[in-house]
Design a protein around this nucleic acid. Structure first.
Length: 724
DNA sequence: CTAGGGTTAG
């Protein structure tokens, strides 16, 4: 019934010289040759069957394909194309074989295998994309030394002998090895898969033989094994198998894995389970992009996924900042009717909050109610936190409203809820509101913890209310709460910003005295303070000290030092420092560039600063408001208002809307040019856009307009200006 | 397996 052609030049266990050319005939066309993992010396070759008859067997009396095999591929030496001669001397052994399994699917499988030298490079003309295939793989090393046949055939009727299964179940590998020295591992594995052998045994053999013969079975065989495990409900074993598969496999595309899964078994349910576990395995192995691709493909194939894989996928995409993909997965989950739970929704809400899509996040809460999933305290905490961090004007009012809603639907706020609100009010420079929430928290019977106090202490420090901050620190100690490094960082920063370096240094020394390890933030805070104090030697000395203690400078450290040197006008040392930073594989970030842009502008070199802006775009950094505002300020100071306004246009083209600082810079620029009417126009424009003028706006208006006898015409807005 | 605190630039 089955005739396969031998390699026409084949001799059993053929041994060829590495660089010999060898013609071979097979029943298929090579459809692809791909590299496998760089650590394994494998290639993967795909053949395409030219003809298979109704019975699914391959009928042939003529060789269909004449493949010419020649050349070599080196993985150790990299390049695919020019490797033919270069790699040979480095190969460990002169024997290189190709193993090919022939799998005329979707009928009952019949298998064949034959060996070929590894120096096989299919002619491009043989490449063909039919999905019917022969497939095989190349490997280095003389595996089947005992084999007398270059070609072996066997059919699925063959069952492994009871002796073999017995040996496997007893893990008597040595005996097994002698027993099947004339068979190939693939033959035996195939037999185990086709017979009703316990899948646990097959798995055991699979693992042993891959290790023993240093080979890697094809994806199709792996998938067949997965199917048999799935049918026997061996889920934990499937999980760990797929975990290992995904971990070691670096070159097999998601699409070929899907193809293999779908052709290796016909149980739709098993397919779905395998794919679900595959997605999870990708995510757990930090291959989120592949997990995402598998998620999409599962939709194409109609395989049903579960929260077990989709939630970790959502979470991983979130952590990668791929919010667009998070939204896609979320919408697909709905569309495909994948079960969703509160964790799925919370993850999506968190993602949307992180990018400031607060209205969308609120919509998701409505979605979840519609799906019969009740929001929990985490859902609300996430949303409140989003409003506190990303909300615009009136954000705290909104956050408070969400708290009210929680009470209304009887979701009890916890310590974290209150901590988020307290921190939000502190950041909003509304300490009195923060203190009110602090009291409310205790009224509700919830105990403030270290985080609560840290938020309040930091809020007070940023307002310069240092005595009160220290008072709170005493209070927390009195309650048995131990100040931690974050507490100290906040306090140190508060003293530094007030110019009280002596107190800051004392606190810094207290940190170590109290058995707390300073963090990079502690050091950076002190270093920055030294720089701003003009004590560059102290700053550099502390940098040395931190390295000695095993904490290494990061970009922020360098930014502070660079800014300090720029203030001194010490451009040479700045250059050295930047080089040093790059040598340590630290990348300059937006802040670094902003510091340099500012330095150039202050030297009256705004054009050069503008070139720096182009440079940052080129290296993939996105200029932010500070960048544009700094550059605009530079042009304004040079009296080049036209250039400044062009920067504003450029900024808005890049999706950055003018903020208060932008207006302050431009208003001042116009005033300096005597264009008070235009400045007044901008002032109105700013107010119409709902931007709240700050202290600086007020100063500019006062100094440049009012004191020069020009009364700004900002009717209806007069209050907000004078109140600033 | 989802929520909270501290550093640098305009």
């Amino acid at each position: 019934m089955l005739k396969l052609l031998c390699l026409n030049t084949a001799t059993p266990n053929l041994r060829v010289k590495p660089d010999s050319n060898l013609a071979f005939h097979s029943l298929g066309r090579l459809t692809g040759l791909t590299r496998r993992s760089p650590t394994n010396s494998f290639f993967r070759a795909c053949f395409c069957s030219d003809s298979s008859d109704e019975s699914g067997s391959v009928s042939s009396s003529q060789p269909v394909v004449k493949g010419e095999v020649k050349g070599a591929e080196s993985e150790a030496n990299g390049s695919d194309s020019k490797a033919s001669s270069a790699i040979m001397p480095t190969c460990p052994k002169p024997e290189y074989y190709l193993t090919v399994s022939v799998l005329p699917l979707p009928r009952r499988p019949l298998f064949a295998e034959f060996y070929m030298p590894i120096h096989v490079k299919p002619h491009l003309s043989l490449m063909h994309s039919k999905p019917n295939f022969f497939h095989g793989k190349f490997r280095l090393g003389n595996i089947y030394t005992g084999n007398k046949h270059a070609l072996r055939l066997f059919s699925s009727d063959n069952a492994p002998s009871p002796i073999v299964t017995e040996l496997i179940s007893k893990q008597q590998w040595k005996s097994l090895k002698t027993h099947h020295k004339n068979a190939s591992p693939i033959t035996l594995l195939q037999q185990l898969l086709d017979s009703k052998t316990d899948p646990d045994l097959t798995l055991r053999y699979f693992k042993w033989s891959e290790k023993e013969f240093n080979l890697s079975y094809s994806v199709e065989l792996s998938c067949k094994l997965l199917h048999s495990l799935a049918n026997a409900k061996r889920y934990p074993k499937m999980r760990s198998f797929l975990h290992g598969f995904v971990k070691n496999e670096n070159s097999i595309s998601v699409s070929s894995v899907f193809h293999a899964i779908s052709v290796s078994g016909d149980s739709f349910c098993a397919n779905s389970i395998i794919v679900d576990m595959l997605v999870l395995a990708y995510v757990e192995n930090m291959k989120t992009h592949l997990g995402f691709e598998a998620f999409k493909r599962a939709g194409d194939y109609g395989f049903k996924l579960s929260v077990i894989s989709c939630n970790p996928l959502l979470s991983a995409l979130m952590k990668d900042g791929k919010i667009g993909d998070v939204e896609y997965v979320y919408e697909e989950m709905m569309r495909r009717r994948i079960e969703v739970n509160v964790i799925s929704f919370n993850t999506v809400i968190n993602g949307l909050c992180k990018v400031g899509k607060l209205n969308k996040a609120s919509d998701v809460i409505q979605d979840m109610k519609a799906w019969g999933v009740l929001p929990n305290v985490i859902t609300y905490n996430t949303l409140i936190s989003g409003y506190c961090k990303k909300g615009r004007i009136g954000k705290m009012y909104k956050a408070d409203a969400i708290l009210k809603e929680m009470f209304a639907i009887e979701v009890r706020p916890n310590e974290i809820t209150f901590n988020i609100l307290i921190d939000g009010f502190c950041k909003d420079e509304n300490l009195s509101a923060a203190m009110k929430v602090f009291e409310e928290m205790q009224t509700q019977g919830l105990k403030p913890n270290v985080v609560t106090y840290n938020s309040l202490i930091n809020g007070l420090c940023l307002e310069g209310r240092l005595d009160e901050a220290v008072g709170l620190q005493d209070e927390m100690v009195g309650l048995g709460l131990k100040p931690n490094v974050v507490t100290y960082n906040a306090l140190i920063n508060g003293f530094c910003k007030k110019g009280k370096m002596k107190e800051a240094t004392d606190l810094f020394n207290d940190v170590v005295k109290n058995g707390i390890s300073p963090t990079i933030i502690t050091y950076n805070t002190m270093i920055d303070a030294y720089c701003k104090d003009g004590r560059m030697e102290d700053a550099f000395a502390l940098r040395e000290a931190m390295v000695d203690r095993g904490t290494f400078p990061n970009v922020t450290t360098y930014n502070s030092l660079i800014a300090g040197l720029c203030r001194e006008g010490n451009i040479t040392v700045v250059r050295n420092l930047i080089n040093e930073m790059l040598n340590k594989a630290l990348k300059a970030d937006v802040v670094t560039y902003n510091i340099l842009v500012d330095a150039l502008c202050k030297e009256g070199e705004s054009r050069k600063a503008a070139r720096l802006l182009d440079e940052m775009v080129k290296i993939g950094l996105r200029p932010n408001h500070v960048t544009y505002n700094t550059l605009m300020d530079g042009y304004c100071r040079e009296g080049n208002l036209r250039a400044a306004l062009n920067v504003r246009t450029q900024m808005e083209k890049e999706g950055r809307r003018a903020n208060v600082v932008t207006y302050n810079v431009l208003i001042k620029g116009l005033c300096k040019k005597g264009k008070l009417e235009d400045a007044n126009g901008l002032l109105n424009e700013m107010l119409e856009k709902g931007l709240i003028p700050n202290r600086r706006t007020y100063e500019i208006v006062k100094e440049e307009m009012v004191e020069k006898g020009f009364v700004p015409d900002i009717e209806g807005h007069l209050y907000s200006i004078s109140a600033s």
